[in-house]
Design a protein around this nucleic acid. Structure first.
Lengths: 344, 344
DNA sequence: TTGTATGCGTTATCAG
DNA sequence: CTGATAACGCATACAA
């Protein structure tokens, strides 16, 4: 038994290791951070002590001294939406491969909450930030710039935006789908969307539908719009409302797959045959789109790929201060049985 | 323009605020942490300076000095599974209500990765930890105990376990469902499960099925078991394998809803009618269970509630060092059309 | 009520 | 290659 036993429950520190290995704390630190800068003999001695003590470096102290955290923060609207869960998982995997830890927070689609979380993550020393959609108070971008924290926006793509972005063209994707819908003869179109006020993806998708209508010579005012929150039951409720309208739609274009699946379920509950009586489209192409019955026509978005690209972009941005970077992800139409030719 | 302008891009520190407000750093610190311990007049002065400088405390420095981070870590197998995404969302919401930040990591069901993440989160100063399932290397629990970091295990419930737990009885729940299945006349039973080696929930569910069979006088060996990873396609593949067996099952009991939905889809692809030709059951009762066709008979688990309770337990555990705490969540059978009487 | 001084565990600079 | 030693930004006994 040693006499100078530093046994107390106190978790071991650099100094403990140094003492046990009979070297200075500086040497221990070097062994851990740049092993090649220390001779093998002493390195072994130190590593042995590290193992013996079960030493683990104190992250906060390290961050304080080194001014770098190897941490990247992500703020998403909610984890309960499969698209974010999936993208975030890929995001984290890619970060992990590069030795970076991820901090997550979810804002529940509330911008004030998001702002608070941005400050929290920054004050925790996040080296970079992943945010969803670009529409937010300009002060936030200024704040981030002043703090020198690089940001990447995902799930949205604005060619004019000054911020690095990885996303897809919500407008074009939905316009393309709407074009298809119209091409199949539909004229009485309805859409169920998330709030277009504070959700840029939603408003662009809506704009896409309108653009396709205009292009086909259909008056914009013919579009029935219901705003609601994303959810299966919410989709069903929205459909019920639509069905009370004088001019019932022949197709409902939903802002995402979750709403669409809710619409299909409710339609069947109301005795409507999908797609014979009512066509339905979604957006995202998550798993439930495939197994829905009928299977859902939707826009396929490679969410995992987006998460991975976002991670890459962010990793490059941290440290090397190149001005910008944009990645455009391609989407594609996924035609399935829930959409069919309009037959009067 | 002031002469002693501390303008440099450097983010402002306590000292900057102190200087601007003409007080000591200690006073500024107090204003921020225990405002009532400082007279109103000076407090206003300080807060004004804080705003003026856009000061935000450096989290790492604070943690280093105060030895408390107001942070709780969570390690889940994956975010892509809706049950964890949902539970975690609730977990985070409850933490947020108490001013606590959540750190997440996902282990991809790999125990070595999980171990690494546990150490990472601890070294980041997490005040507490949420883990899924209790089966892991005992050294880890020792490590955590020595570090004084309280842990709560969720999604598993072991009355004998020494660790605080919030979960449900996987064994009893599955046994109950299996009893129902057997009661409906099924004898040729198959199960598709996650690896029972390192997933205690999976192995308990499997044990539940076996127990129900034994109780009904059916030899355990009659159960066909396929182990796979969770996923729609994996479920389908497992079914294909089962259908090559000499004695085809009349019912497939799946380890979770995702597998079950995959089984249903594949069965229909193979020309089988569910449930007429083949009954299918799931576990979890996620949204997809309701909208599957036929709708899925499954075990309902209140995941959100579990996340919330876990947060509560953890919050209580941090600081006040009471020895233990257990919350048992009730599950219930959710009978739907995918399971029907066995008819030869 | 407020200020002074010290320590928290690392990293990094600069000699040796 | 290694060892002192000064930051890093904040909290907190202790003193005033």
């Amino acid at each position: 038994m040693q006499t100078d036993d530093p046994r107390s429950d106190r978790t071991p520190t650099l100094a403990d290791v140094a003492r046990l290995a009979s070297v200075s704390t500086a040497t221990v630190s070097r062994c851990l951070n740049s092993p090649d800068r220390v001779i093998e003999d002493t390195r072994n001695k130190v590593m042995k002590a590290v193992r013996e003590l079960g030493y683990a470096p104190n992250f906060n102290a390290r961050a304080l001294a080194a001014k770098r955290t190897n941490t990247i923060g992500a703020i998403i609207p909610t984890m309960e939406n499969a698209i974010f869960a999936r993208g975030l998982q890929a995001f984290q995997e890619e970060l992990g491969r590069n030795g970076i830890t991820m901090l997550v927070a979810s804002s529940s689609y509330q911008s004030d909450l998001e702002e608070e979380q941005i400050r929290t993550l920054v004050s925790r020393g996040a080296d970079g930030l992943l945010l969803i959609g670009y529409r937010r108070d300009p002060r936030i971008y200024e704040f981030l710039k002043r703090q020198g924290v690089p940001v990447v926006i995902a799930w949205g793509y604005d060619p004019k935006a000054q911020v690095p972005t990885v996303g897809f063209d919500n407008f074009a994707a939905m316009k393309s789908l709407a074009g298809k819908v119209i091409g199949m003869g539909h004229r009485r179109i309805a859409t169920i969307t998330a709030s277009t006020h504070d959700n840029d993806r939603a408003s662009e998708r809506l704009a896409g539908i309108l653009a396709a209508m205009v292009e086909a010579g259909i008056p914009e005012t013919d579009l029935s719009i219901v705003e609601t929150t994303y959810g299966i039951d919410e989709g069903g409720a929205a459909l019920e409302h639509l069905m009370t309208l004088p001019d019932r739609p022949s197709v409902v274009m939903c802002g995402n797959d979750v709403l669409a699946v809710g619409v299909i379920a409710k339609a069947q509950e109301l005795g409507l045959n999908v797609p014979a009586d009512l066509s339905v489209t979604g957006f995202d192409d998550i798993e439930i789109a495939k197994i829905s019955s009928p299977p859902l026509t939707t826009v396929h978005v490679p969410h995992r790929r987006m998460g991975k690209e976002a991670a890459r972009l962010l990793i490059n941005l941290v440290g090397s201060d190149r001005p910008n970077g944009k990645v455009l992800i391609e989407t594609s139409l996924q035609m399935r049985e829930s959409l069919t030719e309009y037959a009067d």
